[in-house]
Design a protein around this nucleic acid. Structure first.
Lengths: 209, 209
DNA sequence: ATTATGTTGGACCAAATGGTTGAATCCCGG
DNA sequence: CCGGGATTCAACCATTTGGTCCAACATAAT
């Protein structure tokens, strides 16, 4: 059940190298589209050596997902009802966008997994994620009930934040194909857009026209 | 180069059955995760028979993508500068959402393709898609320049529409895991949310607070 | 009926792939 | 420097998979 932590320096280094390589490969080709040879090569190890550190391809994927789950959900966990409601939501938007910018592979890893029906981590994701989302949605609902933000469905608001921010990582080639940005420049524009966009939509003084 | 249209009734029927089956399989498992056996079985044919109608797995995928491209881009093509600007944008949002609802497999097919770097259709998508988006973005820019809608980057606005609407198809399991909707019920809520959301964000009389 | 053409799938093949074996090599504590 | 555990990988294995062959079968025109 519980993962034994690596003992030696070598184990630590190689486990890390394998997970790093696997993140590259899995995020680019999905689980079934990735091969142990690709991962081994990317990690600079032989295939049997990779399987010396992990019992199977499946296990590598599992370990990756488990290891990244916490960091992936951190922005949502950090979302609290302290301070300015709109500021808190904008902050969450910016954090999520920042994660897409700095961790696009992780975004695509999860996107691949969910796209294909979350066959490997579905229950866990759905279970703990649902609880977390329920909790944060309740906060948002209180804000809109109190008139501090516009009256919008909190669940769909959260979905919209996930969608708009992760889009820049998951559909990277499409975004780049259309904008032809220099490196990451378009992320700054995205932040400007999303900030203005959510500010307008959430401002309780605004109307639907 | 040009695809010969099927000649006989049998060809038409079997080609259609294969493409339908392939849509099921590819959209669920991605290109590399799908096998000819799965497609053949889903189509009710033998594997050699499938390859009698299409020269390769690659060709099936190609044909699917090509066949669906038009219908997939139809809502964006239908987006014109006639009538009420905000109405036109909301209309586009609703059409896209409707497509996610009624054609989730198609959405996931394209999502899979783009997620993995659009290795098979990248150039075409990017080329014609970019032109189309440039054209529609220009329309939106004119509107915001004229003060008819809020001043927001038109490209990122379009991305946000793609992201928020396709999210319901592409991340279906996650959405369902969190909302536990009866069938498609949550799509109605999504439409309510997105309509109000975009109305508020686009209303030029509104401020960012 | 006969012939030519279109359709079908069982058997097969070569390559790719997840995983195993075992012997060689490295590394560290004593 | 020695011994035993940790590490490494060439060779190998079984299965899967994209694709081919070919003989049988259906169909339609003459």
């Amino acid at each position: 059940m519980a993962e034994d932590r690596p003992r030696t320096r070598i184990q630590e280094k190689n486990r890390a190298a394998i997970l790093e390589a696997a993140l590259d490969v899995f995020s680019q080709s999905g689980f079934r589209g990735s091969t142990l040879d690709q991962i081994a090569k990317a990690a600079g190890l032989s295939k049997p050596n990779v399987l010396y550190y992990f019992p199977s391809k499946e296990a590598i994927h599992q370990a990756l997902l488990a290891e990244l789950m916490d960091v992936w959900l951190e922005p949502l966990r950090a979302f609290t009802d302290e301070g300015d409601p709109i500021g808190a939501i904008l902050d969450y938007v910016c954090r999520k966008l920042h994660m897409s910018r700095k961790m696009p592979r992780e975004s695509r890893l999860f996107a691949n997994e969910v796209l294909q029906g979350a066959p490997r981590y579905g229950p866990q994701i759905t279970g703990m994620l649902k609880d977390l989302v329920d909790e944060k949605a309740a906060i948002i609902r209180r804000w809109s009930d109190a008139g501090k933000i516009a009256p919008l469905d909190p669940y769909h608001l959260i979905f919209s934040i996930w969608a708009t921010t992760q889009h820049y990582a998951d559909f990277d080639v499409q975004v780049r194909g259309i904008l032809h940005p220099k490196d990451d420049a378009h992320y700054d524009d995205a932040e400007t857009f999303l900030t203005a966009f959510y500010r307008r939509a959430l401002n309780p003084a605004n109307t639907e026209g």
